[in-house]
Design a protein around this nucleic acid. Structure first.
Lengths: 303, 303
DNA sequence: TAGAATTACGGAGGACGTAAGAATA
DNA sequence: TATTCTTACGTCCTCCGTAATTCTA
């Protein structure tokens, strides 16, 4: 279970090919073959089916461990490296799309007004936000999702190196303009379980999360939208491809769609701040700006 | 960051000695010294101070990663091994002390009545429960704690290999018999923040958890009780060394102390079932018995 | 039969033990 | 000065590349 072997194991299954994995990792085919053989010998099981290359049941099980393990390993190294890097005026913020709203933009403006700070915001998928923070490619992360009021978002293990802060606001469903339900003051999510939904796991609230949080079946995806582009999602929703759940302030400003608040179940759109154990000075300042406003937390509905 | 190096790094800090770590791991002193040197070279930082042996700041940081990392690695291996082990009539259950109440005992009785199953229950500390399940030394785990009603317990990352089920019941504070507050029908935890508390992190509800869940400071430990022995804790509480929080049904049966229900904040004693992805047949049956009774979940207060 | 994984083999480098050398309490 | 860690060095073993071999779509 040498991490090198795990890394090539993951690469082999990702590429569905020994040779492609080899060139991706800078090895020869032969080395990759030996890695897989060594791993299989070590674990006493066949992990990969060849021709075509695919995971055996045991390999699939290992694939549930290996990427997380490698990420944690890299995170540990990045965490140590952070201890010794020079203090910087640069702030890199990894952000899921719906977490980047007006409050964050304003907090960044205040940060730049108060000191000379170069800012880089990277809008990426939810899992990538975690990855960027853990590996110190970003100084801070902002991750949005849906939860019961004042509950935290369910996050995978972030290790000892990050903590959380949050803001909360109302949720909305976006309907195409003129849709019968777009007239409503509010909707119940459970009434819409059987509607047409767009699954946009990185941009909107993922449908499996809606299912979990509503405790209801339904929310079956008929249309999948990959990427981190809220406007594109709005265009799809406007063209009646399906519904999606977004934070209300953001959804209300989208063209071609009407945002209707979610009334039931009682849920909020929540943003968590992923905060390394040992943040840079600009990161610490932004954390202060984001989590305190007149001594209380930022609420998006305060806008 | 070879796991072998991490393992000796952890052993060195655990033993506060290179030579002790070496003999514990079956290496020579020299090898351990080389391991530490290699790790320090790899990470570009001094990790341990010698004479006396202690962690540097960077080493302390690494110690927040390394044990979890090694556990996850062992967990992955154990998970794969589980796939290929022979079906067994034996059930090993790892259990935190306050999770082992009458409902669990009865479920085990029903299991044994319905089939020939050898049972082994290991009562261990909370962290050890997780460890035993992840490394497949136990088939199932039962872990108790305190949370808001219907909230899950905050658990560290359990990987993809385990899921949870739960039972919930009321909480109580134990007072020495005859204590003025022992007459009450109920108490508010926040009123007791400044009282004398016994910190018994593995047996009762850990004080830091009380602090977190009450959102209040206080609950400062003056007396620490290590081990997994509820009766011993009761003896200490009866002798007026301090208070502790336990599940009500269990606390009510303890000698020398009076159990007073916690009314506020609204909290429950919750038990989570740690369930491997691929459990043995007896484990699956016990899970069924524990999580369903007449189609609903077990509630300890149903007794 | 061509594309792709495996096996054979050799050289370079790494890992660990023995033993001698420094450092600190 | 005794204990404990470090360094030097030799051996063995592992790792990876080249190249020949086997497999299968």
């Amino acid at each position: 279970m040498d991490p090198h072997l795990l890394r090539t194991f993951v690469a082999v299954l990702d590429h569905r090919s020994f040779s492609l994995a080899a060139s991706a990792l800078g090895y020869t085919q032969s080395a990759v073959s030996q890695h897989i053989a060594a791993l299989e010998a070590d674990l006493g099981t066949r992990l990969v089916e060849r021709r075509p290359v695919a995971a055996t049941p045991a390999g699939a099980r290992l694939m549930e461990h290996a990427p997380a393990l490698l990420l944690r390993l890299e995170a540990a190294r990045a965490d140590l490296a952070r201890l010794h890097r020079a203090p910087s005026d640069r702030l890199t913020l990894a952000c899921s799309p719906a977490a980047l709203g007006a409050p964050v933009a304003r907090a960044l403006a205040r940060l730049r007004a108060s000191a000379r700070v170069d800012v880089e915001v990277r809008v990426v998928g939810r899992e990538a936000v975690i990855e960027e923070v853990l590996t110190a490619r970003a100084d801070l992360g902002l991750l949005d999702g849906v939860a019961a009021p004042s509950d935290p978002l369910p996050l995978p293990d972030l290790g000892p190196t990050v903590t959380l802060a949050a803001s909360e606001g109302p949720l909305a469903v976006i309907f195409p303009d003129g849709h019968p339900l777009a007239e409503r003051d509010a909707v119940r999510l459970t009434d819409l379980a059987q509607a047409q939904w767009i699954d946009s796991p990185d941009t909107a609230v993922p449908l499996d999360r809606l299912r979990a949080v509503c405790g209801a079946d339904g929310f079956r995806p008929r249309f999948r939208h990959l990427g981190t582009d809220i406007h594109g999602l709005a265009a799809l929703a406007a063209a009646d491809h399906g519904l999606a759940v977004l934070p209300l302030p953001l959804a209300a400003a989208l063209p071609g769609v009407t945002a209707v608040p979610v009334r039931h179940p009682r849920l909020v759109h929540r943003t968590e701040l992923l905060h390394p154990a040992d943040p840079s000075t600009p990161a610490r300042r932004l954390t202060g700006l984001l989590t305190h406003r007149d001594g209380s937390r930022v609420h998006e509905d305060a806008d």
